[in-house]
Every structure is written in C-alpha cells, then in structure tokens.
Amino acid sequence: MNKFLKDLEKELKKHKINPKEIEEILADHKEMIEAAKQEGLSDDEISLKFGDPLKVATEIYEDSKTKDTEIDFNLGDVDSLAKFDTNDFNFVKAFNLVSDGLEFNFSLVNDDLIFSDYDGEGIKIYEKGIKDLDDYEFTLNDNQFTLKRKSTKKVFKVITFSSNSGKFLVLVPKGLKSKSFNFHTVSGDVVINQLVVNDFRLKSTNGDIELSNIDLGEAKFSLVNGDVDIQGMKATSFDVSLVNGDIEIEKAQVKGNMQFNSVSGDVELEEVECDTASFKTVSGDVKGKNFYVNEISLKSVSGDVDIDNDDKSREIIVKSKKTLSGDVKINK
C-alpha cells in the first residue's frame, strides 16, 4: 500500500497542491489505509476500495481551483504591506472560536491598526503603546467582533490632552471569510493585509490607508485627508470619496463600477480592470497605466484623465465628459 501513498504524493505534486496540504492529505490516507488493514482487508481489497490515486489528486486540484477563483487573486499575491513582528507587541486578548461570516467593527480615534492573517486558529489582539486598555472594548458576540474606544468623553480628553497614540495588531486565521468590515477612525492609520469580506466600509478623517491582498466585495471609503495605497484587490464595486488625499491602486479587479470623488487628490491606477469607472474631481488628475475599463465618465473642473495601455485594441468608451479645462486622453 506504500505504492498508493507514493503515487498519490507524486500526483499531488504534479498538480502543484501546496506542500502543507500534501502532507495533510498523505497523513489522512496513511491513517485510513491503516484503519482498513485493522479491519482485516487484504491489500487487493484495499486497492479496490481506494481506487486510483490520480483521481484523488485531480479532484482535490479541481476543488482547490474553484476555491481559488473565489478567494485568491488571479493576479497573484503581492507583497504584504503589513510589516510587523509580534514580539514588538503585547498580547491583549484572544478569541479562540471563530468561523466564517464574522462582522468586524472597529471604532478608533487616533490609534493605528494593523490587520493581518496568520497561521493559527482564532483571533488574536496585540497592542503597542496603548495608554490604558480599559478605555477600549474588545468583544466577540454572535459573530460580531468589536474593537472600540469606549466613551466619547474620554475621546475628547485624548484628542486634546494627549498626542500619544498607540497601535493595535489584530490577527485572524488564514482564509477566514467574513461578512462585513466596518472601520471608523479619526486620525489613526490602518494597514490591512489579507481580508476576504462581502461588505467593506472605511471612514477616516486623517489617517492613511494601506491595503494589500484583499477581496472586499462591496467597498466604500470615505476619507478627508489621508492617502490610500492599495495593492492586490478584488471587489465587486469600489466607491471612494475624499477631499485631499491621493489614491494609488496597483493590481485590482473590480467586477462592477469604480467611483472616485475627490476634490484635489490625484488618482493613480496601474494594472486595474473594471467594468465602468466614473471620476468626479475638481482639480485632481487621473492617471491610468494598463487601466482596462469598458466605459468611463469624467466630471471635473480642471482635472484630467490620462490612460495609457499596452493593449490598445481594447476599446474604452467615454460615456460622458463634463469638464471646464480638463481633458480625457486615451492611448495618446
């Protein structure tokens, strides 16, 4: 029966299943074959019962493929923007039992947040430089995860009397698929790496936003001043409104519409694909390099749209253009 295991390993490798999974699958099979032997099955009977290892490998490969298109990026993972070492942080709290479908709610004032996945079970919260943990609420009830600063009175105190701000680090298990992610801050920065969620909302006055390897479903950002840097994104729709900050998106696939409302911030898009895009700006410019979109509209005072794509045969229709002195340039 060792031949079965060897063949199975070979087939799994051929199908480029990841090494960790291969190890697990082989261990499962070793255990099952052993169980069959203990029940007195002969080698021949076992081969009959287990069948062709090639089939196991193909089926697992097919399954992983369909799963991949659901959560992973066809674009390939990009480098994480979340850089941290848990040793630099103090452990605060862990929630051991988590399942898909979580609703995340963050409400912070001036503290930063790093949100990332890790190889492990449960949600882990760490902090660095947080003055008083009693000012915060950490809960997980009925699939609702909350991290928030408690009372508004204290919030004012913090803003006026303390310029110190700390940092939270929240780690969630790899592959977790969540229902919603709501983030609300005044001046804290947020860095997120690896998030799969159906509904994403982010509201911030001043903080900078850095997101990598994210699958957001419906995504909505409303910002005043901070910059947004996104690398590796999937979304069904994307809507951002900001006053001053700049937006940079590299590698993204959006099924539906991308909506940008900005006053003076610039938008830079590289390797971005979406169905339709509309830009409303006063003086902000839009620059696209390999920005594949079927239809765009622009409403601006002086903002320009400039798109330069390698594949010039893919037509981009300018649906509407209302601008005083701005211009739309496509592949020119």
Partner: peptide
C-alpha cells in the same frame, strides 16, 4: 466518524470508492 469509517459506510451501499469520497470530505471540512 473517522475517515475510513465514512468511506466504509457509504461504499457498503453505493458503488463509490475512496477517491470520490475523500476529496468531498476534505472540501466540506475546508
């Protein structure tokens, strides 16, 4: 149930073997 038991229970009644059942068991777990 443990893996082999699932396979055994099902293949008693239906003409399917491990290579059909295990991938399903694994996917449902995932």
């Amino acid at each position: 149930l443990y893996g082999y038991k699932v396979i055994n229970n099902i293949s008693e009644h239906l003409d399917v073997n491990e290579n059909t059942i295990y991938p399903i068991l694994r996917r449902l777990t995932k």
